[in-house]
């Protein structure tokens, strides 16, 4: 298969995740919003580790920082770290069962949240409670859905 095929699918899914990430949600659910962009990025890093990695994470992260009005580099740093980890782990993760994968996703998104939390504390706006780990939990619960959806897209458009 020719390389460079279907790269737009990766970009389109990341963009849709970005829209989901800024979609207004009710106040009660605000801490439960899954980290959509990080989830999609983790999927592509595991599915196409030779094509999606730190560079994509870097560009996505800068976009997310601007989108969220965060310190420039907060999401960039966090997403780069989890991209690095998932590219390193892809051979093992692919063999795992769905719920084992969800466990790995919980840890990865947890690391993402932890890094964001560090940067926010540097800035002086972080929370004191461990609330910031809730998105990791909800992301892990959404992983099976994201996985089947993105896998369907990847197979349909023969992204490789």
């Amino acid at each position: 298969m020719e390389s460079g095929q279907g790269y737009w699918v990766v970009i389109a899914t990341l963009l849709s995740a970005a829209v989901l990430a800024v979609l207004p949600v009710p106040h009660a659910l605000v801490w439960w919003r899954p980290e959509w962009v990080a989830l999609v990025l983790v999927y592509w890093c595991i599915a196409l580790p030779h094509r999606v990695g730190v560079v994509v994470a870097l560009l996505t992260g800068i976009g997310m920082d601007i989108l969220e009005g965060a310190v420039l580099g907060q999401n960039t740093f966090a997403l780069s770290v989890i991209a690095l980890l998932s590219v390193g782990l892809y051979q093992r993760v692919r063999l795992f069962s769905l719920w084992q994968q969800a466990g790995i996703v919980f840890v990865l998104i947890g690391i993402h949240q932890l890094i964001c939390q560090w940067v926010q504390n540097l800035e002086g706006v972080g929370t004191q409670q461990p609330l910031f780990l809730l998105p990791a939990l909800s992301s892990a619960l959404f992983w099976p859905l994201v996985l089947s959806l993105l896998r369907g897209l990847r197979r349909h458009y023969r992204v490789a």
Binding site: L58, V71, L72, G73, Q74, T76, S80, V81, L122
Partner: peptide, 14 residues
């Protein structure tokens, strides 16, 4: 290396 650059970025902005 990229992580170091990004750390620099955070510092520059903050």
């Amino acid at each position: 290396l990229t992580l170091l650059v990004v750390a620099g970025l955070i510092l520059a902005d903050l």
